[in-house]
Amino acid sequence: MPARPLLDVRRIYLEPAAAELPRGRQILARWPDAERVEVDSHWRIPELHGDETNVRRWVRIKTEALVLGVKKSLTARPNGRSADFIAPSTANGCAMACAYCYVPRRKGYSNPVTVFCNIEQITGYLARHVARQGVKPEPNQCDPVSWVYDLGENGDCSVDADISDNVADLISLFRGLPSAKGSFATKYVNRRLLDLDPQGRTRIRFSLMPAEIARLLDIRTSPVAERLAALDDFVAAGYEVHVNLSPVVVTANWLADWAELLDQLDAATSPATKAQLAAEVIFLTHNEDLHRVNLGWHPRAEEVLWRPAMQETKRSEGGQVNVRYRSGDKGRYVSELLALIEARTPWLRVRYAF
Rank of each mutant, 00 (worst) to 15 (best):
D150P: 06
T90C: 12
A17C: 07
P144A: 07
P271C: 00
G124M: 05
N154I: 11
Y13L: 07
A211P: 09
A225L: 08
N294T: 12
P104W: 00
I341M: 11
L208G: 01
N253Y: 10
V115G: 04
D329R: 15
I163W: 03
I163M: 06
G124F: 03
A236Y: 03
E336Q: 14
E47A: 13
R128Y: 03
G24Q: 05
N322W: 14
L6V: 03
H129T: 08
L48D: 07
I45P: 02
A301N: 01
N140H: 08
H49A: 07
A275R: 09
S110F: 06
A343S: 13
M209G: 13
L265T: 06
V304A: 09
V113Y: 00
L151A: 08
R227D: 01
D33K: 13
V39T: 11
A256P: 03
A76I: 10
M209T: 14
V281M: 02
V224K: 00
P46W: 00
V248Q: 05
E288W: 06
V323E: 10
E336F: 01
T90I: 15
H42C: 11
T114C: 11
S73H: 15
A3L: 13
D51L: 05
M96N: 06
Y13N: 05
L245F: 05
T114I: 12
L48A: 04
H42A: 14
T75C: 11
W306V: 08
V241S: 02
D143F: 00
L7P: 02
A17P: 09
F184N: 08
V304Y: 06
G238D: 06
A279K: 03
A343Q: 14
P104H: 02
L262N: 06
A353H: 07
S41H: 04
D150R: 10
E52G: 05
R300P: 08
S82Y: 14
D195P: 01
A18M: 09
N79L: 11
T251E: 10
V249M: 04
Q121G: 15
P308D: 09
Q264N: 11
E15D: 10
R349E: 13
T90S: 12
P137G: 08
V135E: 14
T123F: 01
L228W: 04
A180R: 02
G108S: 01
P88V: 04
I61D: 04
D143R: 02
D197W: 08
A275S: 12
D150V: 01
A180C: 03
L337H: 07
G296Y: 08
E226D: 15
G93H: 02
H242A: 13
Q26N: 09
V113D: 05
P271D: 01
W43E: 14
A29M: 06
G200A: 04
Y333T: 10
T345S: 13
I61N: 07
